[in-house]
């Protein structure tokens, strides 16, 4: 089972309410988020609107506001919220014993449209 999951390090690398980035050789960069409520999410680091780096946005609840044009993107589903339409791929993530794991197949397989 563990082999399917990629250990990307301890949870305390990410301050609550922020995100950090994870470049993928041959794939799209991933943004790993930690909300104020200590939920963890991973998304491709590209806003569905104009590919803004979501990792740099302000995190509120489990929504991130894209730094380029303030689109609000759900961290859970990757969907744009409100009037905006679009969706960014999410990467299955789990936290176990203080470490963050991403689903290996999703890390190397996903590309934003």
């Amino acid at each position: 089972m563990i082999g399917d999951w990629l250990d990307i390090g301890p949870v305390d690398q990410i301050t609550p309410g922020t995100a950090r980035t994870l470049p993928v050789l041959g794939g799209d960069e991933i943004a790993v988020f930690r909300t104020q409520a200590n939920e963890f999410y991973a998304l491709i680091n590209k806003c569905p609107h104009k590919q803004g780096p979501l990792s740099q946005g302000i995190v509120h609840g489990n929504v991130v506001a894209c730094p380029l044009h303030n689109w609000n993107i759900s961290l859970k589903t990757g969907e744009a919220l409100g009037e905006d339409k679009g969706c960014v791929p999410t990467i299955p993530l789990r936290v176990d014993a203080g470490r963050i794991y991403l689903l290996r197949s999703a890390v190397v397989g996903k590309r934003a449209a």
Partner: peptide, 10 residues
């Protein structure tokens, strides 16, 4: 970056 992913075959 928090880490980098470098798939072996690549």
């Amino acid at each position: 970056h928090m880490a980098q992913v470098r798939p072996l075959q690549l």
